[in-house]
Every structure is written in structure tokens, then in C-alpha cells.
Design a protein around this nucleic acid. Structure first.
Ligand SMILES: [Mn+2]
Ligand SMILES: [Mn+2]
Ligand SMILES: [Mn+2]
Ligand SMILES: [Mn+2]
Lengths: 230, 230
DNA sequence: CCTAATAATTAGGTATGCCTAAATTTGCAG
DNA sequence: CTGCAAATTTAGGCATACCTAATTATTAGG
């Protein structure tokens, strides 16, 4: 009967599937194909099929699934996914603000703990932090009621024009990249000038009033979201 | 391959077996019989046998086990058990001191989280708390190196004489009892006068300078450890 | 010393979640 | 329209950690 450990009803695995479907389906909740899930979760495609069938067959299903045509979250699934995301981002903020974690270490710890904290814990750290709206990477923290207002930021990688922007958020997926961005001053809220779109499919940028320019690869530019200057 | 979720190598289950063996075997590390483990962990005796065989057969075994004659921890097992206890008690202290948890809610949360926090998390909350030596129930927190100095406190239930004592610790196992003790002022460090050993196998006691006496059942008296007045 | 109760072990199952290999299905190119 | 490649599903397994029922050991009383 094992594989729980949870404060709530779901397993860590189920939570991670729900989060992945939310993330890959985007705010509009597009259907997500098994292959993307398999990649995102680093499991075999067969394992995904298996899990989706189980989730869809449950008494009150967390997903809507049709053979060969992908999944999307049910209302209940979306609610749970947003709760886990809220846990994740509150924990990240807490580790960064209260426990003085280095920015590049918060994600891994949050990825684990998000499944195991109680509602009380969630409520207490939120209170301690003054009910923050964004996490240290610049990502929105869903509300207790499960709402998340999206920024209409765009990926730096999608910018063709030169110009000045405000950094909205940076990806937390890769600790190494994050460390480098932090070192370069590329953190949420900073002002970023895009000097030119270099030949080698990258960018030359500078931060704040600094005249020091440096290069970002196309790869890295996909991990940075920006907004027009206010 | 599942049932992990852990920051370290063991599963939650294994950790809980090790902690139970440490606790039931006492500081001297007496052999523990399967039945006690089954009761403590709320699993069937057959499940205990199964687990002990697996733990003992591992490449570097966490326990020494002989059929029909109980288990004790190996050096490695003891080290890990003490680490989990350290996690548990640091987390309790943290929840109580930093997150303002009610005393009777810290145990349940710690019982879960103790298995999932990283070494960094352990180190950071210890630092935040100023490297505390005892938890909110009065229990010693093992050091990072795996040492735990035992108090030579005795259970109130073992006191025959009347007299005045200092409360060393209270059990965290039952939230209800804990809430009542807290309400009566029975907390670590408080001064306790034992008035009489009542007929119905209980105690009449008072706290501090108060003249108000109240009764404690023999049951409850087993959950309180005391020291002679300094 | 023998027996009966108690403790422990073995045998045979279940559920979760994952894997590989062997079918299927789909959808696109020619 | 066909045929192939990519995506998906099915089939068959494995590991963890439980459970119940049946069997075997140990041990304390008489
Ligand atoms: Mn996770
Ligand atoms: Mn984040
Ligand atoms: Mn535990
Ligand atoms: Mn405690």
C-alpha cells in the first residue's frame, strides 16, 4: 500500500505528472502529448500511458485522457497542480529569504519538499514572508484559492529587435545557468539592454547603466523572460 | 525503482525502522524483538521480519539480525538513526520557534519532513536557531557528528516519593496529552511538586509556586520525565 | 521434560510506479 | 491513397513495502 509519505492524498509521482501537464499545456490548458511528458519527467513513454490511464480512470479523475490524443487536466487536477506550484514557489522564496539559500540551490530542495509539507506549513511560511506574489526567479505564486495571473512577458530568445527591457523571470531548471545569470546581474527586475543579435545566433547585452557588454547564447536566452520597460 | 523521494539514500520506511530500533533498544543498544517493532510501526510482524532480513542482507548492513532473536543497529545504522532523530528534533524546534506552530502540531509535521530535508536544510535551520541542544519537548538533539548525551532523568511514573522536581521532557507521541500538559504548565524546565500518590494509581501535583493541585493519571505520568531540583 | 502460548517466519498476494520489447495507431509524404 | 516513421499502447517484469494465513521456533509453566 506504500508510496505515500504525503500530507495530502496524492503521491509524489502523481503530483509531478499534474505539474508537468500544467506546465506543458500552458495557461490555456492545451492537450499534452505523452512524449513531452515522458521527456519532461524522464520516464519511458509506456510509463506515461500507464499513469494517465490510471489517473483518468479514477473515481474523480484528475485528468481527461483520450487514447492517442493526449491529456489535459480536469478542474480537480488543475486545482491540485496549482497547489503544488504554490508550495514549490513559496518554499523557494522561504529558502532564499529566510534560510539564506544560494539562489541556485532553492529549486532542487523545493522540488522535493513541495509534496510533503502540510497546509499548515504552507500557511505559516506564506505568513512569515508577508504573502509574497513572486518567487526569487520572478515566477508568480498561485493564490491559496488556485488563481495565478500570468505576466505577458516574452522570452528573450523571441526578441528580434534591439532595445531596453526589464527582466521578468529566469528559469530555475538549470542550477549552473542560474548561477551564471546571477553573477552577471541578470535577476528579476534588472534592466537589460539588448545591443545586438550576434551572428552566432546569440545576443550581446548589458545590464543597468553598465557599459560592459557580454554574450548570451540562444540557449540561455530561452531561459530569460522579459517585459518592455514600464 | 520508486519509493524514494529522499534527499539521502534510504527510504522513509527504512529510516523509520532504524529510528524505532534506536528508540526501543535504548541508549545501550539492546536487541529489539520484532513484535515491539511491529507495534511501534503499526505494521504486521511478517512485514518486520521481511524488512529486517533485507536490511541485514544488504552490502553494508544497517542492522545486525539473528532469526528469532531480534535486531540491533550496526554502527552505520546507528549513525543514520541519530541523523534522522537530529532532523526530527531540529525541525520541531524550527516549527515551534520560527514558524510559531502550536506545540502539539510540531511532531506530526517533523515525522514526515525528517526524511526529506537535505543536509543543507539541516545545517541552515540549525544555524538559524543557534545550534540548539534541546527540542521544544525537552529532548536532546544529537550533534552533527552523531553524538547524543543522555539526561539521567526518570519517568514521573517511576516516582514513589513525594517531593519537588524539574520537568526534563514530555513525550511528543500524543498531541492531545501534550495540549493538556501545556495548558497545565507542565513544560520542560517547570518546577513540579508531587503532593501525593493517589489511591487510583495517579498523582496529585502542582506547578511552580502555585497552590492549585491537579491530578495526573499513571498513563500521563509515563509521558513525563523529571530530574531532581538542581 | 513436555506442552501450550507467544513470537517469528514462510508462503502467497496486492498496490504503486517504473522498465523493455513487441504490437498498434496516426498522420504525413510521395 | 499508400506506406513508413513517429507516437502510443500492450504485454510481461521488477523492486519496494505492505498484508493474511499457515507453519515453525522458543520459552515459560506445570
Ligand atoms: Mn517535485
Ligand atoms: Mn521558481
Ligand atoms: Mn518519520
Ligand atoms: Mn520532540
Amino acid at each position: 500500500m506504500p508510496a505515500r509519505g504525503q500530507a495530502n492524498g496524492n503521491t509524489e509521482s502523481v503530483d509531478n505528472y499534474l505539474k508537468a501537464i500544467l506546465s506543458l499545456g500552458g495557461p490555456e490548458g492545451r492537450r499534452v502529448i505523452s512524449k513531452s511528458l515522458a521527456e519532461r519527467l524522464s520516464v519511458a513513454p509506456a510509463s506515461v500511458t500507464n499513469m494517465l490511464q490510471k489517473l483518468a480512470a479514477a473515481p474523480s479523475p484528475l485528468v481527461e485522457y483520450e487514447r492517442h490524443r493526449g491529456v489535459k487536466l480536469s478542474a480537480a487536477g488543475r486545482r491540485r497542480a496549482l497547489e503544488v506550484v504554490r508550495h514549490h514557489r513559496l518554499i523557494e522564496t522561504f529558502l532564499y529569504e529566510v534560510l539564506d539559500y544560494p539562489i541556485d540551490e532553492v529549486h532542487e530542495e523545493a522540488e522535493r519538499l513541495e509534496h510533503f509539507i502540510s497546509e499548515r506549513f504552507e500557511e505559516r511560511i506564506a505568513a512569515k514572508l508577508g504573502h509574497p506574489k513572486i518567487d526569487p526567479h520572478g515566477h508568480c505564486i498561485p493564490t491559496m484559492e488556485g488563481h495565478m495571473q500570468e505576466h505577458d512577458s516574452i522570452r528573450l530568445a523571441d526578441v528580434v529587435d534591439e532595445g531596453t527591457f526589464v527582466i521578468d523571470s529566469v528559469s530555475d531548471r538549470d542550477a549552473g545557468t542560474l548561477r551564471q545569470l546571477e553573477a552577471s546581474g541578470i535577476t528579476p527586475g534588472a534592466r537589460l539592454r539588448v545591443r545586438k543579435h550576434t551572428a552566432l545566433d546569440g545576443y550581446s547585452v548589458s545590464i543597468g547603466r553598465s557599459s560592459k557588454a557580454f554574450d548570451l547564447s540562444q540557449e540561455t536566452a530561452r531561459d530569460i523572460r522579459i517585459l518592455p520597460v514600464a
